[in-house]
Amino acid sequence: MTQHTTPDERRPANRGPKAAAGNRAALVAAAREIYAVHGLDAPLSGIARRAGVGQGVLYRHFPDRDAIASAVLEENVRQVEQAADDEGATFAGVLGVVTWHLAQSAAFIGLLHADGANGRFRAHALAGDLSERFERSLRGCLPDGHRLGAADAPDDLMLAVAMVSGAVTGPTPEERERRALAAWRLLGITVGPVAPFKG
């Protein structure tokens, strides 16, 4: 009996060692997409298929589930840092990048709620460091006198982010983005264009 594969299950061509950087980037992008739908418990085989590589390639770059989850979280935070460090960065603009990641990546939402993480993945052990970097980036572009930067309420910034991320639910990135923007609006906070950072 011949087994037919669907386009998503096609066996990828071996592109050789020169494709390593591209393969790694494709795996991180695929993991973000898969995690957005299935969370951190998603099968690694699905990530490899989505990236267009074999499972052996995935394991060469990421030896276990923790390593790929950590890479996705690191990439999310790195993009927020780059957006905040960009010349002419605004708080609203950086929130647009944050909102994109909230809508696209269930793993990122888990990071922002690290206190409730069950510790199942080593990636959660990195959450404290990544969360601090994330908060530092946001604080760095808060305008002087912004109510989320008030000295007498130092937790308000991250509390607002947690409230918005808690509202980010829905079956599609578009629905999650819509809910995130509605939550920011209810908090009276302006958000710039929702998009990944492209420096």
Rank of each mutant, 00 (worst) to 15 (best):
G119R: 02
L126D: 15
A36T: 14
R133H: 11
L112V: 07
V94F: 03
L126K: 10
G96L: 07
L111K: 01
R60G: 07
L102F: 12
L102V: 13
Q104Y: 01
F108V: 07
A103N: 02
G56P: 09
R136Y: 14
E87Q: 14
F62T: 10
F121V: 01
E75T: 11
A69R: 00
G56E: 15
R136N: 15
E75A: 13
A69E: 09
S105I: 06
T90P: 01
E74G: 02
R32Y: 08
P63H: 08
F91H: 11
R120I: 08
G88D: 08
Q79A: 12
A71H: 07
A36K: 02
L111M: 13
V98P: 11
F108M: 02
R65M: 04
A127E: 11
N76S: 10
Y59R: 08
Y59G: 09
R133I: 03
L44V: 14
Y59C: 11
A31N: 03
V53T: 10
E81Y: 00
R78Y: 13
R60V: 08
G119T: 05
N76I: 00
T90L: 03
E75M: 00
D86Y: 00
Q104G: 05
N118H: 07
R122D: 15
E135I: 01
T90F: 07
F91W: 10
G119M: 06
D86I: 00
V72R: 03
A48C: 04
E75Q: 12
A42D: 09
L111S: 07
A83V: 05
E81P: 02
E74P: 04
L111V: 13
A92H: 11
V98L: 12
V80D: 13
A83P: 14
I47E: 08
R49I: 07
S105H: 03
L58T: 10
D64L: 00
E74V: 02
E135N: 08
F91V: 06
N118G: 07
L138Y: 15
S105T: 14
S45Q: 11
R50M: 14
G54V: 04
A114P: 07
P43A: 05
E132G: 06
A30N: 02
R49P: 07
A67E: 15
D41R: 06
L73A: 14
G110Q: 02
E135V: 09
A83N: 08
R78P: 12
G93M: 02
D115N: 10
A92R: 02
G116E: 15
N118L: 01
H113D: 15
A103K: 03
H113A: 11
A123M: 01
L112D: 11
H101R: 06
A51N: 03
R50E: 15
T99G: 05
L112S: 08
S45A: 11
A117Q: 10
H61F: 04
A107N: 00
A89G: 09
R120M: 01
L58N: 01
A84M: 06
R60S: 15
A30C: 08
I34T: 13
L102Q: 14
A69H: 01
L138V: 12
V94Y: 09
D86S: 10
D41L: 00
L126E: 15
I109F: 03
V37R: 14
E75N: 13
D41F: 00
H38G: 04
